[in-house]
C-alpha cells in the first residue's frame, strides 16, 4: 500500500450509535442540513450497552482509522443502566488500547436525540483529529 501523507488521507471511521439518542441526533443533523464530513459509517445499536468491545477491536483490525461510540447521557439510557455498563467497558478497552498507542482512535460521547449540532461538531472534530494522526498502522496489513 502506498504511504498516504498525513493530513491528505480521508479517514474511515466506524460509528456505533444508540438507537434512542445518538443515532437520532445523526438523523437530526442530516435533516437540519448540518454540515459534517462524510467519514463515518454508522452502525445502529439498540443501546450503547450492546457495544461489545470486540466490535471496536474488529473495526480497528479491519483497518478502520477510528471508532466512534455514541450513547444517551448517563442517567438517560432507555434501558436505565446500559450506558453505565458501556462506560466501564469502553474505559477498559481504551486503557488496553492506550498501552498499544491506539486509544486516541477510539472516542465515545453522550449525545441526545436533540443534539444534532453536537453530533455534527463531534464528527468534524474527530475526522480532523484522525486526519492529523494519519492512517491506522494496521491498515493494509495481512492480519
Amino acid at each position: 500500500m502506498v504511504e498516504e501523507a498525513k493530513g491528505e488521507f480521508e479517514p474511515k471511521i466506524i460509528g456505533f450509535t444508540c438507537n434512542w439518542c445518538t443515532y437520532a441526533s445523526a438523523d437530526l443533523a442530516g435533516t437540519s442540513r448540518k454540515k459534517y464530513p462524510p467519514n463515518t459509517r454508522i452502525i445502529r445499536l439498540m443501546c450503547s450497552g450492546r457495544l461489545d468491545p470486540m466490535f471496536v477491536l474488529r473495526a480497528l483490525l479491519n483497518g478502520a482509522d477510528g471508532v466512534f461510540i455514541g450513547g444517551c447521557h448517563p442517567g438517560e439510557c432507555h434501558y436505565i443502566k446500559g450506558n453505565f455498563y458501556a462506560r466501564r467497558r469502553i474505559a477498559a478497552i481504551r486503557t488496553i488500547l492506550k498501552e498499544l498507542g491506539m486509544a486516541n482512535r477510539v472516542r465515545s460521547e453522550w449525545i441526545s436525540a436533540s443534539e444534532g449540532d453536537k453530533f455534527a461538531s463531534v464528527m468534524k472534530e474527530m475526522a480532523a483529529q484522525i486526519k492529523e494522526m494519519g492512517p491506522n498502522p494496521l491498515r493494509g496489513k495481512v492480519l
Binding site: 442517567g75 443502566k81 462506560r87 467497558r89 469502553i90 474505559a91 477498559a92 481504551r94 472516542r107
Partner: peptide, 16 residues
C-alpha cells in the same frame, strides 16, 4: 468484578 457494577459518576476522562 468491575464489569458487573458501576457508579453513576465516573470514568468520564477515560472515554475520549
Amino acid at each position: 468484578i468491575p464489569f458487573t457494577t458501576y457508579e453513576e459518576e465516573e470514568l468520564e476522562d477515560r472515554l475520549r
